[in-house]
Design a protein around this nucleic acid. Structure first.
Lengths: 212, 212
DNA sequence: GCTAGCCTGTGACAAGTTTCACAGCGTGAG
DNA sequence: CTCACGCTGTGAAACTTGTCACAGGCTAGC
């Protein structure tokens, strides 16, 4: 029922709220959070309906309580293990990016088919041979996988992952993956993003914010 | 008038069509292309209305003509230069990713504020000091910039880029950039993508908490 | 030459998402 | 105490995006 886009914004709100918390703020109004996030106040309030936390009309939202509500809504109760497949340039950058930062959502295993990479520890993560993927994914109850392999290996890999029990993929390959309906795919397509940006660089982009 | 999402799909269609072309296909039907792209046939036809190319009811679309039509619709007539700012792990991966592959949309300059990176050639791209950004962007008529710097430098950088004449940003920083309305921002937020994937990995339907 | 079949292009409709607008309430000023 | 204010939560309107369904037309086979 809760939409894709709402989930994405909740993730963003949480990060912004954590910053506010670090800055010492105790309460926050929807319009303030909206301004930080670049959306409207009504949208923030609508999104927060999904998590079920109620703010006070006089002070707004209690920042730490709201963070906790979003956390219990978004995060799996027991944490969630993530597998990274493909330890090339992009895979290594992703590992570095997430390294240690996220306790509840960490990359617990890396895989590659290249024997030169297998056995190495990359940014704190051991690289297993791709053949062991089904066993390790099952043993560690990994539900999410990041696909960062060459394009021609992606579809076969996706099928292996799904057979091994993965429920959700983050796909960095610029080609659509064909998976059964119960599997969620989040595409991160840098090529398309760049081409969109190039298209809108000419012609008119219409946004509403201004420089602070 | 043509929406964001249509542009993204056109970029995808073009890549799929190029693959078909490489495979020797001469004609393609909307339902075939739709199947490759993971969308419906009606959507493909609707999207292609934007580019103005007409297929034939009997053979479908002429692949190479269609590719050419999409190209002339999407790409800037004289090509488009792209700047990359931030030559860290992610920036280097992006450089490697795009290296040489795209003639009409190539990264023509890289920038970093770290003196250790300045002057080095990374994946075929010279790294300039950040201070020279306004001059080089103006001289090379760069309209698109990729933002891959630490989060706390992103907003200031965005303002510098906009002042230097950049019209469009691809933002890899997990925080929204505040820019004037004429500037387009394409967010590529890996953190949010992963959190979305994690959310949908569990049934999604099964909410653990109900009303208090 | 005619009919059956399948395709495209597109108006009309449906679904999904965002914004509007207002009731209701707690707070602080007078 | 009372009033006015400004905020939240939410039904309903507005807008955006995707799908349906069919007219029109080319082709193939008879």
């Amino acid at each position: 029922m809760t939409s894709d886009k709402t989930i994405g914004r909740l993730s963003l709100y949480r990060r912004l709220l954590n910053e506010l918390l670090a800055g010492g703020a105790k309460y926050v109004y929807s319009h303030h959070l909206a301004n930080e996030a670049g959306v409207t106040a009504a949208q923030v309030r609508r999104d927060l309906m999904a998590v079920g936390y109620n703010g006070s009309p006089s002070h707004g939202y209690d920042v730490s309580e709201l963070v906790e509500s979003i956390r219990s809504f978004l995060d799996a109760p027991k944490g969630q293990g993530v597998a990274l497949v493909g330890v090339g340039n992009l895979g290594r950058a992703i590992l570095a990016y997430f390294n240690g930062r996220r306790p509840h959502l960490s990359i617990v295993a890396a895989f590659d088919s290249d024997p030169h990479k297998v056995g190495r520890v990359v940014h704190g993560c051991y690289c297993h041979p791709i053949e062991e993927l089904p066993r390790i994914v099952a043993e560690k109850h990994i539900g999410v996988a990041i696909v960062a392999v060459p394009a021609n290996e992606a579809q076969e890999l996706a099928e292996t992952l799904v057979r091994s029990g993965v429920r959700s993929l983050v796909n960095f390959v610029p080609a659509p993956l064909h998976v059964p309906p119960h599997v969620y795919v989040e595409d991160v397509d840098i090529t398309t993003s760049l081409e969109k940006a190039a298209y809108f660089a000419r012609g008119g982009a219409v946004r509403e914010e201004v420089l602070p």
